[in-house]
Simulated assay, not measured.
Amino acid sequence: MKKLLLLLLMASSAIANTSDPVNQAVAFNNWYVNQISQNNFPITDGKDIDKYVIASTMQKLRRTQDPNYDDEVFYDADFFLKAQDIGDDWSGNVSAIAGDTDPVCVNVYVAFGKEQKHIVIDCMVKENGLWKVQSVTRLQFTRNLERH
């Protein structure tokens, strides 16, 4: 009975995080960094990424993996991390450091590593009642949340 209660609490906690764009962005990036560090490629390896990224973005990303995809656009960095490699200290060191809202999405500034030198901005939107990544960018910013 205690195990069942614990499982229910963990499940409700996981569901609660999906209702907050900041927590969901951090959860996604933690999960994604761990997948990459284990040499998994979430865009084509299974469907787990679909609970974090909106369907239209995943459809576009998966289409680029088709051998018949003929487009001159070449990305020299990972779409979600905006980096060619992950840092040695990124696993376990992903945090939200800033956020703002515009008419399109909730922008969550996510920092990687102990020094938080690599930062991306996840554009989070609701899809079927859950916060998910729509797009990602990387740029300079002014920190507006305290470091944790």
Rank of each mutant, 00 (worst) to 15 (best):
V108C: 07
N144G: 04
T64N: 00
Q24F: 01
T18E: 12
G87C: 08
Q35E: 10
D70C: 06
Q134L: 12
H148P: 11
L81I: 15
F80K: 10
R147M: 05
S19G: 06
L145W: 10
V120N: 11
A77L: 11
I49F: 07
D89H: 08
K126E: 15
L9S: 07
I97N: 14
L8A: 12
W131K: 08
K82L: 01
W31N: 02
I36G: 13
S12I: 14
D76Y: 05
T64E: 09
N17H: 07
R63Y: 03
N68R: 13
Q38Y: 05
D66V: 12
V22R: 06
A25M: 07
P67W: 05
L130I: 10
G129L: 07
V120A: 06
A77Y: 12
R62D: 00
H118K: 11
I86P: 03
R62S: 00
C123M: 00
Q24E: 13
W31I: 07
V133W: 02
H118A: 01
D71W: 06
D78T: 04
I54T: 08
D85R: 13
R138D: 10
Y32R: 01
F79N: 05
S13T: 13
G113H: 09
N93S: 13
N39G: 02
I43A: 00
Q140E: 13
V22Q: 11
D45G: 02
K82D: 01
G129E: 10
I119S: 13
V108P: 00
N29S: 14
L8G: 02
M124C: 02
D76W: 01
A25S: 09
R63Q: 15
V104N: 08
V110A: 11
L9M: 08
G87R: 06
D78S: 07
K82A: 10
L6S: 07
V53A: 10
L8P: 00
Q38G: 10
T142R: 11
M1P: 04
A14T: 02
R62E: 02
Q116Y: 06
G92T: 12
V26W: 05
I43P: 03
N34I: 11
K82V: 06
N107C: 04
W31Y: 15
A25Q: 03
Q134H: 09
K60G: 06
D102K: 08
N30M: 10
D76L: 10
R147N: 09
C123H: 05
S12H: 03
D66F: 07
Q116R: 15
N68Q: 12
T57A: 15
A25H: 10
M124F: 03
Y52L: 12
V53I: 04
G46N: 00
I97F: 03
K117S: 08
D50E: 15
G129P: 01
S13R: 06
D122S: 09
D85L: 13
V110R: 09
K51G: 02
V120G: 06
N144W: 07
P103L: 08
L145A: 04
H118C: 09
D71N: 15
V108T: 05
V106L: 11
V53Q: 01
S56Y: 08
N93C: 13
D66R: 09
I43H: 00
V106Q: 06
Q35F: 00
A83N: 08
F141K: 04
K60M: 13
D48E: 14
S56D: 11
V110D: 12
T57N: 08
Q116C: 10
Q84D: 11
L81P: 06
S13Y: 09
D48T: 01
